[in-house]
Design a protein around this nucleic acid. Structure first.
Length: 281
DNA sequence: CGCATTTCCTGGTAGC
DNA sequence: TGCTACCAGGAAATGC
């Protein structure tokens, strides 16, 4: 499922092809709705560039609008124009100029979004409006991350998934980063120590950077713009490995549910924070 | 406002 | 083989 590394991979591939291109028309094949709002406004505007914030692709348009794509779980962007439209084609963007001159958005599960807003006006996208810092922003320090964590009593994993303390971390990389620093996913965010917070931010950066280098993690649906799989799945230490052995201590990885999300962790490396109510054994 | 819960959606798969 | 039941989950909507 596309998280920051997968979206960044797609961005890097789209950028040289799409930037500067003028949109001739946009065809909406999905039922109209807020997930596909205002697409008709894009016609006649040029795509200035392809940016990314967290898991959102942001394409500022020359007429003062902005085209926003979120891949959800199963969204795939591909240069189209070949063959018949697929069963799950939701949006097709026709471009002026030489082929390939069509961008297709396929999304079997329809969790994705593909819409136009006035530039910078993210009222329809509250998560984007309240998005935390980009993890690779150099002015984003461990101290600032610690301050952000201090503001919430939520389980640290759930808080990471909210996109508020840092942008772009999803279920896979949250589990990976927490395992790397030995923090239990249910630890209240505000109880993460200052030193741990710095280590956690460093771990988030390391795992995201390594995955970007591998062009992301393909478990099922994610593909790059050119249809390739991401190779990071082979390097996952915890996600999807419940019941297998921990690569650090050799113990058995366990699965639990945190904030309605499947979570894998090592009960030996990631100790639960002290619970005062726990009875003596 | 903060946080928990529910909803959206369908391919894949386990079980019979 | 074909059927049902259930699971996966990012973000928004809803509830308290």
């Amino acid at each position: 499922m596309p998280e920051l590394p997968e979206v960044e991979t797609v961005r890097r591939q789209l950028q040289p092809w799409l930037s500067g291109r003028t949109i001739a028309r946009v065809e909406l094949l999905a039922p109209p709705g807020p997930k596909y709002a205002s697409l008709e406004r894009a016609a006649g505007q040029a795509i200035e560039r392809v940016d990314r914030r967290g898991k959102f692709l942001l394409m500022p348009l020359s007429g003062g609008d902005e085209l926003i794509a979120h891949l959800g779980m199963t969204g795939v962007l591909t240069p189209g124009g070949t063959g018949q439209p697929g069963k799950h084609l939701r949006v097709a963007v026709d471009l002026e100029g030489a082929a390939p001159n069509r961008l297709e958005f396929n999304d079997p599960r329809r969790f994705g979004r593909f819409l136009v807003v006035r530039r910078g006006e993210y009222g329809a996208l509250p998560t984007l409006a309240a998005l935390g810092p980009e993890p690779f922003d150099e002015s984003f320090t461990g101290a600032r991350f610690y301050q952000a964590l201090q503001r919430s009593q939520m389980a640290v994993k759930t808080y990471l998934l909210s996109q508020r303390p840092v942008a772009g971390v999803g279920n896979i990389y949250a589990d990976e980063a927490l395992w790397r620093v030995g923090v239990h996913p249910l630890t209240p965010a505000a109880r993460v120590k200052k030193e741990q917070a710095s280590q956690l931010l460093a771990a988030v950066r390391d795992v995201l950077a390594a995955s970007i280098e591998a062009q992301g993690t393909t478990l099922a649906d994610y593909r790059t713009v050119y249809g390739e799989s991401g190779d990071y799945a082979d390097r996952l230490d915890v996600y999807g490995r419940a019941g297998q052995e921990c690569r650090r201590c050799g113990g058995r990885l366990e699965r639990l549910v945190v904030g309605q999300r499947g979570t894998t962790y090592c009960p030996d490396c990631q100790r639960r924070p002290t619970d005062r109510r726990r009875r003596a054994k």
